[in-house]
Design a protein around this nucleic acid. Structure first.
Lengths: 236, 236
DNA sequence: TCCACCCCAGTCCTATAGGATCTGAACATG
DNA sequence: CATGTTCAGATCCTATAGGACTGGGGTGGA
């Protein structure tokens, strides 16, 4: 994440080769992603190529490439010859659709992951749950960012542990959006205690080695998230 | 897909301006996609930015943007500072993983689509099956290209008819790859008769209006595709 | 014969420049 | 006051140029 200042490489090092020469477009990508996650870029707002380039003090070329990559995550939309705009906010319908999709994919992931779970994998999952418990849950986004990160990591790890690249791809097609639904209504994290308990239940089911139980636990978790989020959502 | 015929535009049009001004990067994208589908670009081959630019007689900038978009389809892989390469061929394991993922997603799509199927949608699906039957199935790729297109269209229509943007996204995350698995082994289309019958069965189940039947028919179709493809695959 | 070094072509990556188009505001006109 | 026009700025899009690195081939020396 942090990029090494390319100029300050000490002379002592053998071949002057920077630790990891980073492509500028990658940096721009990360920067835009952070702006989107933090809500600094509001939904519907235009993302000017030239403007972003000036702001980040780079040329438009890497910005263009970064936006092209961002487009397929669903965070921004592109209209030819018109530019890019931040994707619109989630509606209740959008949220319901997302949960339906998660319900189709994630329990299967849990079942598959359970069948080939290693102690090492289990350790990573346990760490994610611990991080979830320890994460601060203040009202501002910066404060519960760690919580969201741990949440997303837990689910992503399960997808990766299926060993199935396509299940990972399918999950990733949703993942970018999963973060954003939290912003809808701006209610923040109100269900942390329930969510942590459910994550623990999924973890226990996985540890038990019974794929059926793991699948059921994950399905229940997703259903409950849906139920709570709809209940918490502003009447609008 | 089909371009609107431009004939109806009155002659008064101030000369020169094409009906739909196309961004060059879009053209490059389509061109590269066709090369990948047709097998002109072999798996593992390097895709040089400058070289492609020279070949298509454009500057590297649009090529770079087109490749950035292609990357997330899984057709090409990028290594920072090293360039792009065509994704490697499918192995039997890759194929098994793909089918597992389809089995998780597509039957759900069939169930959801069944619940909100309109006569208009049904018509489109019927057309896809008709096209599948009529498509030539010669040995070369150019000859069975129409067959693959109709096959993909049938499944994509069902995903779209769920009305769930995330299910479409999840399907699309697999779709680009779905086309490519046909190339593994280069056995061509050997199961057209069976596949057509199964598509017809899925269509009938959808038309019956019973979501359970639709889900089951799709699941059976995917399972049978897997079974046939593994049987047909070269011993290797 | 084998190894070290150098040169060079190819490539990726970024910056810069310029053309075409769109937007919006100021201005003129009925 | 309403409407059409003009013009300047912003923006998108593409081409071109140059820096930095990589890999291969040739040359000279051990």
């Amino acid at each position: 994440m942090q990029l090494a200042s390319t100029g300050s490489v000490p002379e002592g090092r053998p071949a002057g080769r920077p630790v990891s020469r980073q492509v500028l477009a990658d940096h721009v990508y990360e920067e835009l992603l952070a702006s989107l996650m933090d809500g600094r870029l509001e939904p519907g707002a235009a993302v000017s190529i030239d403007g972003t380039a000036r702001e980040l003090d780079v040329s438009p070329t890497p910005v263009r490439e970064a936006l092209a990559r961002l487009e397929h995550t669903g965070m921004v939309r592109r209209v030819a010859l018109k530019g890019y705009r931040v994707a619109p906010v989630f509606t209740q319908e959008d949220f319901a659709e997302l949960m339906e999709a998660r319900l189709a994919i994630e329990p299967v992931n849990a079942r598959l992951a359970c069948a080939r779970l290693t102690p090492n994998h289990l350790k990573e999952l346990e760490q994610a749950v611990v991080d979830l418990k320890d994460a601060p849950r203040g009202p501002s986004f910066a404060e519960f960012r760690g919580y969201l990160e741990a949440d997303e990591r837990f689910h992503r790890l399960i997808a990766e542990q299926t060993g199935n690249q396509f299940m990972v791809a399918a999950y990733a097609a949703l993942g970018g959006q999963i973060q954003r639904f939290r912003l809808f209504g701006g209610v923040g994290i109100t269900d942390a205690d329930h969510a942590i308990a459910e994550h623990q239940a999924v973890l226990d089911a996985l540890a038990s080695g019974d794929p059926q139980k793991a699948e059921a636990a994950m399905a229940e978790h997703v259903r409950k998230v849906r139920g709570r989020a709809i209940a918490d959502a502003p009447a609008d």
